[in-house]
């Protein structure tokens, strides 16, 4: 459930609401940023910037434009892409090639207690290569359908449904039906 009341309070600059929002969303947003930067220190920095920006521009979120999570996602992706221009990022020895989120998941040994680690591991095992790419571009990188179709050289009309199949599989293993 989207915590609508909490969001409203957050928009009215209620600090305890902000703390709860941070608690709810910071780890997923951190994951998104890290999947772009592959650098823990820089990702933490960007994470703080993102929530600071969200706080300072809280009034600019309107439910008509979409989900609150989506709003945060967009701020995070933009901030992470901005960071890739920084000297700090260019000097970091991280692998700057477009690694897939799956690579991060495969390298990881321990998961936060908040997630269904068994489900996620199982998902990586059953994930088709095309799903890996589609989710990487659309969700983690925020590509449009058109950009995704071009990057993967698949027909534009199939992007949406293909992605749905991939996400359905995720929900199946995580038992979100």
């Amino acid at each position: 459930m989207q915590p609508d009341q909490l969001i409203e309070k957050f928009q009215q600059k209620d600090e305890s609401a902000f703390a709860k929002i941070y608690e709810l969303y910071s780890e997923s947003i951190f994951g998104i940023i890290y999947s772009v930067l592959h650098n823990q220190e820089l990702s933490e920095e960007v994470l703080q910037d993102v929530f600071l920006k969200a706080w300072n521009n809280a009034a600019s979120y309107t439910p008509e434009k979409g989900r609150f999570f989506t709003w945060l996602l967009n701020i995070a992706r933009n901030a992470a892409i901005d960071k890739t221009r920084s000297k700090a990022f260019k000097n970091s020895k991280q692998n700057q090639n477009a690694a897939y989120f799956v690579d991060i998941l495969e390298e990881k040994s321990s998961f936060s207690s908040r997630i269904d680690a068994i489900g996620i591991k199982k998902y990586i095992e059953v994930l088709e290569p095309i799903c890996k790419k589609v989710i990487h571009l659309l969700f983690f990188k925020g590509y449009t359908q058109k950009e995704t179709a071009e990057a993967l050289e698949i027909p534009l009309g199939t992007v949406k449904t293909r992605n749905r199949i991939c996400i359905n599989k995720l929900r199946e293993v995580l038992d979100i039906k």
Partner: peptide, 12 residues
Amino acid sequence: KGLQQLSNATAP
């Protein structure tokens, strides 16, 4: 919910 779990899992 599914997506939050997925991106949550990619946090180091």
